[in-house]
């Protein structure tokens, strides 16, 4: 377990953050985290070095597949529990954010907390594929090409899914949009 131990120490925080961002609650995140490591342990390819970028992409690909399977199982369970599960999911997301922003005043902090709560809910409501693409891009910082490789989809599909995800998130954040004209993003001299 020498190589794997190194891999484990190096990527545990990354994988846990990814699991927290993808899963509905802390319990699901822990399941996803453990399942990913178990699958990785069984399938570790020979010659892979812990520090290589490929190792990180390989681990995230396993986590994305494990998340897909988790959602599939949840769909089967939801067939039996119907709306009850959905309502519970919303409550759980509210109670178990795990999103914390330091360094804001109480007033500002409350407003930002509302946005984050809404954002958290909106992310957890995204369809599985869009959620995986969005989290890989916005939270893990992968490039479109890398996301395509991780999820096994073309880069154009990554762009389409990301666009859809952002549009959905915007709909949920409507109430926080300022009434005044938004400031331009493409300012002079900004790439």
């Amino acid at each position: 377990m020498t190589f794997f131990g190194e891999l484990y120490d190096m990527y545990t925080p990354h994988l846990y953050r990814f699991s927290r961002a993808l899963a509905q609650d802390a319990g699901d995140a822990e399941d996803l985290f453990q399942e990913t490591w178990l699958r990785a342990f069984k399938a570790a390819p020979a010659g892979l070095e812990a520090g290589e970028p490929e190792a990180k992409a390989w681990l995230f690909a396993i986590a994305a597949n494990a998340h897909k399977d988790l959602l599939r199982k949840r769909r089967v369970r939801r067939l039996f529990l119907l709306e009850r599960t959905k309502a519970m999911g919303d409550r759980t997301a509210d109670a178990d954010l795990g999103w914390d922003v330091p360094g804001h005043s109480a007033e500002d902090g409350a407003a930002r907390s509302d946005i984050r709560l809404c954002l958290r809910r909106a992310v957890s409501r995204l369809p599985g594929k869009e959620r995986r693409v969005f989290v890989l891009k916005d939270i893990e910082g992968f490039r479109h090409e890398e996301i395509g490789r991780i999820l096994g989809i073309p880069e154009t599909t990554v762009r389409t899914l990301l666009h859809r995800a952002v549009k959905r998130l915007r709909e949920d954040l409507t109430e926080f949009r300022p009434a005044k004209e938004p400031r331009p993003v493409f300012e002079e001299g900004k790439s």
Binding site: P13, R170, L173, P182, V185
Partner: peptide, 19 residues
């Protein structure tokens, strides 16, 4: 574009809990 900036800023400011 402005909403996208807000989303990115909010996500960038998130402090994720350690495992």
């Amino acid at each position: 574009a402005a909403d996208r900036t807000v989303i990115r800023e909010e996500l960038a400011a998130v402090r994720w809990p350690p495992p």
